[in-house]
Write a protein that binds this DNA or RNA. Sequence first.
DNA 1: ATTTTCTATAATGTCCAACATTTTGCAAAA
DNA 2: TTTTGCAAAATGTTGGACATTATAGAAAAT
Lengths: 221, 221
Amino acid sequence: MLFGGRKSEDDTVVEMLASAIRRDISFGVLRPDQKLKLADLRQSYGGSNHSMRETLRILTSEGVVEATNQRGFRVTSATEEDLRDILLVRLEVEKLGLKLSLKQGDVAWESRVVAALHAVRRADALVQERPDDVTALEWDEACRDLSMALMSASGSPRLTDMAAQFYGQSRRFRLALLREGRIDFAARATRRTQLQEAIIAREEARAVGILEDEIGADLGA
Amino acid sequence: MLFGGRKSEDDTVVEMLASAIRRDISFGVLRPDQKLKLADLRQSYGGSNHSMRETLRILTSEGVVEATNQRGFRVTSATEEDLRDILLVRLEVEKLGLKLSLKQGDVAWESRVVAALHAVRRADALVQERPDDVTALEWDEACRDLSMALMSASGSPRLTDMAAQFYGQSRRFRLALLREGRIDFAARATRRTQLQEAIIAREEARAVGILEDEIGADLGA
DNA sequence: ATTTTCTATAATGTCCAACATTTTGCAAAA
DNA sequence: TTTTGCAAAATGTTGGACATTATAGAAAAT
């Protein structure tokens, strides 16, 4: 294998390949609808036929790659319509998760949310002052962690998995917005403040409303 | 390859293996939490190392098999808690899909639903009069088609995919209920009649209520 | 009894080869 | 010029042999 990631974090070759390709799809190095020829991929990322196919199967199950019988793999398309669909589902899933967490979450949950909000604050600041690929990924990761934290007291592992999956599918679009300078950081800061209040006060309607705004902002409209 | 399915329907070897193993998991031949050793599986179902791993990856993405790094695959566990979680998500997804379909569906959609309801009626009758594995699968398939038909005007491919996935995860439990004679066919018949009325009248609250009962029945409580 | 070490088993990864399908390029026909 | 059909090339799919690495359970040592 040649490059793409550290063997220490990514246990197996397949995982290393998966995170490298996943990242390149996130950043648009591998473009939507692009055909993923096994030979080319092996050339770029290394790995055997076997490993690469397994890698693509994994990415297929994450929804960022699509497989067609006898016709190989391609990067999942990324149209305006796709974005709408992804965000529709993401919103519904995260809304439900948040509602369940609000009902069942204890102080530890609140703490996790507050911590995640803080991390997002820092990531927002960092990505504005030094915008490169590394900080962009860290920023996105912080946002993801917040979404996950909000659902973490839902008690539904499958709902949480789904949220993670659809967040992953929206990543490409989010990073594109960031790159194009179309993120409203002021609005994000406001929502964070309000979300923290709403959660600690357990005001479901208000918290859900903010979540709607937050995910709606990913539409970039 | 030895046996398990027809090459004509299942395009590739991997798909043939997948449907054979999927079916055996559905019927409990491969039991929850059972370790799936590649060598054993190849012995039983045929296929090469490569094909079998790819098959298991596919089943993993469907949620009926789980993979652990360096420790291979096992049949997804099937506890009471798993069932609750699956049905929670299934209900929410199908509810949303039904609501969207009710808003956007045209006459063609209504026709599909009516057709699917009819097919379920026939399947219910058949499985009661001649209960074997074949009719059981046909019955389950008819129920699945109805769920899919209800969502088919939602306009959200990802929501539909999710519904299909979670339906697949609940199949084992549904077939177990059927085997144990714990399906209330009279109640099902009533719900079908009411559902058809509610849908044609576009009464959302009533239709959603029936869906809740229908999926709730899968709890077997 | 607990911990450590060793070993058999199984998973993971690579290479190579054969075969099937799809796509492509080119020529012939309309 | 466009369309159609066919052959060649590219690509995907499957299989098998084998090397490497990790895990789990047995055996040994404390």
